[in-house]
Design a binder for these strands. Structure first.
Length: 263
DNA sequence: AATCGATACAACCGCTATGGA
DNA sequence: CTCCATAGCGGTTGTATCGAT
């Protein structure tokens, strides 16, 4: 048996759409199955991660608000590095995002502290505005983290998937220009999917996106299960083969959208 | 204009928890 | 009870981008 090559690295738009379609149809469980029927040469694990951290419609785009920052700091001090737990308190934020955020600030803070230690005169430094409750055994050395002094660009601010797309390939200037005019965000993808599959499956999501990011982790796809209690998961390998990879369906969708994706 | 370091984010890896056979 | 498959979690790494020099 020849092991099929597993793809790694950054996801392409095509893969993203394929995955979204699959999850839309089959739900966000059984990732190995999804990986198989989707035709994606990815592991189930990879699919899940991509979905959870990037494609989930409830994800909030944009940089952390001061309130969120404060919350992260407080919860981290309370619970330590229980990122998934912390993430549950921040609707629309993923554990990965919070983890990365914390790591960045942790490093920043460590540097600041180091600096402060070497120059006593600046010991009060810039952290005086931080939550006072921080600092217990859980968090390594951080006592506080600067809140909202972020001048950094925001990945999501600039178009999320669209920006990723622009960043990913070696686009020609024409393509980049087109991209800048037509940023194809996940929200739009979802709208398109809802539209194009309207008669195939009930839209699972309602009220996603900016402002409506009240997703509780189970909102996604579960309706599919509710509607199909004797689920597709009961297929064995043979049955799986009878399920054409979703990519076939995908291509019809993809073709419709090709002008957007391919320019 | 080129280079380099810092930053932010995506993705992977390894381990653990959980549930079903 | 044990074994196995799968999902989930936390840590780590890779890389694109930006700003400073």
């Amino acid at each position: 048996m020849v092991q099929e090559e597993i793809r790694r690295g950054p996801w392409t738009e095509q893969e993203d759409v394929q995955l979204v379609l699959c999850v839309n149809v089959y739900g966000d469980r059984r990732w190995d199955f999804i990986a198989k029927v989707s035709g994606l040469k990815r592991t189930g694990k990879s699919c899940r991660l991509r979905w959870v951290n990037y494609l989930h419609p409830g994800l909030k785009r944009g940089k952390m608000t001061p309130h969120e920052e404060r919350l992260v700091i407080e919860l981290q001090s309370k619970w330590g590095n229980r990122w998934s737990r912390i993430a549950r308190k921040l609707p629309g934020r993923t554990d990965n995002e919070i983890k990365n955020y914390w790591r960045t600030h942790l490093r920043k803070t460590a540097q600041e502290r180091k600096k402060a230690a070497t120059s006593p005169s600046s010991s009060t430094s810039s952290f005086s505005n931080c939550s006072s409750s921080v600092s217990n055994g859980n968090s390594p050395t951080v006592e506080s983290v600067p809140i909202s002094e972020t001048k950094e660009r925001s990945f999501y601010d600039t178009g999320g998937l669209g920006m990723l797309t622009a960043a990913r390939g070696n686009k020609t200037s024409q393509e980049e220009e087109a991209m800048s005019q037509k940023v194809y965000s996940m929200d739009e993808i979802w709208k398109d999917i809802e539209f194009s599959e309207d008669d195939v499956i009930q839209p699972i999501y309602d009220g996603y996106g900016e402002g409506g990011c009240n997703f509780s982790s189970q909102t996604m796809a579960s309706p599919v299960w509710d509607d199909h209690p004797v689920s597709l998961w009961m297929m064995d390998d043979e049955e799986t083969k009878m399920f054409p990879p979703i990519s076939n369906q995908f291509y019809s969708f993809y073709n419709q959208e090709s002008t957007i994706f391919a320019g």
